[in-house]
């Protein structure tokens, strides 16, 4: 029985067919769904989602897209919560490497395909790059409607009044829009999408982006897309500005300060006794900036590369 461990012993650059996760006709079918999604920005395209070696909800949709769109010698980055070394990212990365003749990186600027869960890189992505987002719940309207037939009708007729009412009610009850992550956005002026659970901080970079975003929901069997140069407008009222999570305290890396450019998405690290430290969520971006600032040695980078 071939184990994951065995797969890892194989060199990353073998030319012959590696241990497959998806057969070629499945990949073609998924690519077709991706093309449909690009052609109709924001529309949730149903597809015959395959069972993956990771559980439903663990990135099975993103994994299928990545496996379907990568070509020989593509460079792939996989990260989760902004962290390349997280357990889920590490697992997905080695699966992709075991199945496809690709190399991996942590630097999003070098990557052709970036598979991510919950984050968009702090770096500005450019033409030709593909961001693959793992989506647990693709339906932005589920909070206001459960019936799938009615949901289909609402999208078909662009009838989003119920969503607007929920935003109105939110402000009335709470004084603010309390939607946290996965903020609903209007894509290309037509379809409302769920921006996966990425934080609101990551929504503005999707607007008129130069890169292609592909959203894969394996469990719910849908794919949707934001093509390059497409409007992505967070749903909010004209007089209630869309708000992102701000830097409220300096980051422990010393390079991010409140009210200073560039900001970054920070996560809170509470200590045992109530004191809190803040850290950059995007670990690779942070490390590169620290390296430039002379705050981190080259050897640390080397150690990371070996592990990839």
């Amino acid at each position: 029985m071939t184990t994951i461990e065995d797969l890892l012993q194989q060199p990353a650059t073998v030319e012959e067919r590696k241990t497959p996760i998806l057969d070629e006709s499945s990949k073609r079918e998924i690519r077709r769904a991706c093309l449909t999604a690009v052609a109709v920005p924001g529309y949730q395209v149903p597809f015959g989602s395959r069972e993956m070696p990771v559980a439903r909800g663990w990135g099975s949709g993103g994994l299928q897209i990545t496996l379907a769109v990568v070509g020989r010698d593509d460079v792939v980055k996989v990260y989760d919560q902004g962290e390349d070394g997280g357990v889920n990212a590490a697992n997905l990365r080695r699966l992709i490497r075991s199945a496809e003749p690709v190399t991996t990186t942590t630097d999003p600027r070098e990557a052709d395909v970036i598979q991510t869960r919950h984050r968009v890189p702090e770096d500005v992505l450019v033409d030709g790059q593909i961001l693959v987002l793992q989506v647990p719940v693709p339906e932005p309207l589920r909070g206001v409607e459960r019936d799938m037939t009615e949901l289909r009708r609402m999208h078909a007729e662009a009838d989003y009044a119920k969503m607007w009412v929920s935003l109105y009610e939110d402000i009335v009850r709470n004084g603010i829009i309390t939607q946290t992550t996965g903020y609903p956005c209007l894509v290309g002026g037509r379809y409302v999408i769920a921006t996966t659970p990425i934080p609101r901080w990551d929504v503005p970079p999707l607007h008129q982006a130069r890169f292609l975003s592909l959203f894969g929901a394996g469990r719910e069997k849908r794919i949707y897309a934001i093509p390059p140069h497409t409007d992505v407008e967070p749903l909010t009222f004209e007089d209630v500005p869309f708000q992102v999570e701000e830097v409220v305290e300096p980051c422990r890396c010393g390079l991010i300060q409140p009210d200073e450019e560039p900001g970054a998405y920070l996560v809170e690290l509470p200590g045992q006794t109530g004191e809190t430290v803040w850290a950059c969520s995007d670990t690779d971006w942070c490390a590169r900036r620290r390296l430039e600032a002379g705050l981190l040695g080259e050897d640390a980078i080397d150690a990371l590369e070996v592990d990839l």
């Binding site: 559980a55 647990p136 004084g175 934080p199 969520s281």
Partner: peptide, 26 residues
């Protein structure tokens, strides 16, 4: 079961956003 078990994955990016809204709530 996959969706249920995915709750065990790291969710600290989303949770930070939730905490932020709680603090912002009037």
């Amino acid at each position: 079961s996959g969706f249920l078990e995915h709750l065990k994955l790291p969710h600290y990016v989303t949770f930070r956003s939730m905490v932020e809204r709680k603090r912002a709530m009037a």
